[in-house]
Amino acid sequence: MKKYLMIIRNSFMSSIIYRFHFFFTSLSNVFYIIIIYFLWRAIYKGSGGSINGMTFNQTFIYLALAISIFCLFKTWTDWGMSYQIINGIIVMNLIKPMDIQLLEMCNAIGFVFYNFITVTLPALFIIIFIFQPGVITVSNLMLFLLPMVLAFFISFNIDYIIGLTSFYTESIWGISIAKDTIVLLLSGALIPINFFPEILRKIVGFLPFQAIYHIPLTILISKDMSIYEYLKFLGIQLSWAIALYALNRFYYSRAIKVVTVNGG
């Protein structure tokens, strides 16, 4: 256990050395939040307060937090694995007495801590103190935590699938870009799922992406959620987490047989 904690610490420490980077990443996200604020204010201008059952405040909180969570979970696992494959340094991880999936996950957790400080915390401050949307309650925030942990696990496993794909293809530039777009679109992080046309909403319900953003955010912004509904959401997340984890175990056992390392 201790060795995995060290991995988390290392990955955190090595990411905080770029101070300048830190500042602009934070600023980028703040600007994005400002843009969506004005964009959605304009969208809501002609309507009578609520579109598709969501008020402006709810939509804004939903989208601003969604992008903050996207940045929080952006741990570059897939890029890192592809880099290790191309350079051959994956060997150094394969010979360690550690489980590679867990090792990558610990790396990702270290990154999440870093992202939390640089991106999510400033974003939260801005959302709460400048825009003052006032739809979040403390009890909602408590209920929000567990779904967030599960959401991270699902998000990591999706990245890990792409990372394992690099065992076959080496470069994953295109796949990774496509993945980011698909996840952002179909998870409701760019436009709330409530806005989707009926048929699309049904399809999205069967995919794992909405479990990353839509479920935790719905829990956060809804006013009176029954315990039954809450448990149902957790159930969906948990089943996706288990399914993706099992898939990755199987995929790894196949992929490890084809991996070729040049030198190293």
């Binding site: 969208i43 579109i51 870009i177 496509a178 777009t181 679109l185 760019l190 436009i191 806005f195 989707f196």
Partner: peptide, 21 residues
Amino acid sequence: IGILLESGAGFFSLWVIFHSI
């Protein structure tokens, strides 16, 4: 394909938004 999806996403967003307004 990745780039096509990335740039196409913007059109998709517009399309979805204009369902409501």
